[in-house]
Amino acid sequence: MKSRIAFFVVVFILWLLLCMTFDWVHVVSGVVIACFISLVAGDMFVTRPYVLKNPFRYLWFMYYVPLFIWECLKANIDVAYRVIHPMRPIKPGIVKVKTRLKSETGLTFLANSITLTPGTMSVDLDEENGIIYIHWINVVSTDIDEATERIVSRFERVLAKIFE
């Protein structure tokens, strides 16, 4: 029930932002639609509602967003350099890294962040052993620990505080 209420609030706010008109027709239809969606799908998205209560998670999320945008910008300049360089300086390969995140949301965010950061793209995920397979456009090290240190650790630290 708690997860349904949390999901209702999120869907309703999203609806209001999409409309941006606050007359009663839109608000009432928003309530109806959000009720329906959260009844049908509420327990699929928010599985641990107690996580939403901790304010420090939101603060860490505020810290994570600029970190992510900065890494994303670096990634773009890096890839753009490799694309327009006449010699095409790439050395691709698929490496393995370890992660200690367990929650589904945390793993999703980690995989998405890896995809949008310099030269790496997550290919597959082994949830039970905490292993991510990553396509690396410029393989620096094939060793699992060093690859983990270079690719995962800068996000994992913050994401563990937000989602675990």
């Binding site: 910008l73 773009n76 890839v79 490799r82 694309v83 995809t115 949008l116 396509h135 456009i137």
Partner: peptide
Amino acid sequence: LFDLLGCIGLVRMPDIYNRLQAATKCVTF
């Protein structure tokens, strides 16, 4: 500019994985 670079990368990179790298990063940003 970055969208254009992503499209150039889509043409220039050698295999599907490198193409996805260029297409995803540059075009998303």
